[in-house]
């Protein structure tokens, strides 16, 4: 059976178009993170603290509730500051602006709500937990 060049060309174009569509839809589907800032993982001064933009936006906060007064709109900038510590939070800086026991739970309570630890950090990076050998 002979396949004409034209048929081949049509098939090829159809395939490419379909491929393009899949790629595009993936890009659109994955846009959520960029729209609300996604999940932020702080690793300084301790590993690790998680901040979920979506949870906070679902509570009715707007971008300008925190940006750019409390946090610059670029991941990693707060961590560069020497005062990005629990002490600062207790003084009402950074997360402590809301997490004061009034607007939201106080910074010196419910530690592990935000602190996911090294274990949580490794889980989020898909690495799972490191095997600790030498035991039984």
């Amino acid at each position: 059976m002979k396949i004409s060049n034209k048929t081949l060309l049509v098939a090829l174009v159809a395939l490419l178009t379909a491929g393009l569509f899949v790629v595009t839809s993936q890009a659109i589907g994955g846009d959520d993170d960029e729209e609300d800032g996604g999940t932020i993982i702080f690793t300084q001064p301790v590993k690790a603290v998680v901040f979920e933009h979506s949870i906070h936006m679902d509570m009715g906060l707007e971008c300008d509730s925190c940006h750019d007064d409390l946090f610059e709109m670029a991941a990693g900038t707060a961590e560069e500051n020497d005062d990005f510590t629990m002490k600062s939070l207790y003084e009402g800086k950074y997360c402590g602006a809301c997490h004061d026991g009034d607007t939201a739970f106080a910074s010196n309570t419910r530690c592990t709500s935000c602190h996911i630890g090294v274990k949580g950090y490794e889980r989020m990076n898909g690495g799972g937990e490191k095997k600790e050998g030498g035991h039984h």
């Binding site: 301790v46 602190h115 630890g117 090294v118 600790e132 035991h135």
Partner: peptide, 28 residues
């Protein structure tokens, strides 16, 4: 209730006591 698993204790222990990667003297 104050532990946040930063594991600085583990790091310090390994460094101070020359603990190899496959073992631990303390963990979380």
């Amino acid at each position: 209730n104050h532990c946040v698993d930063c594991e600085k204790c583990k790091e310090a222990c390994k460094k101070t006591n020359n603990v190899p990667e496959e073992g631990y003297r303390t963990t979380i």
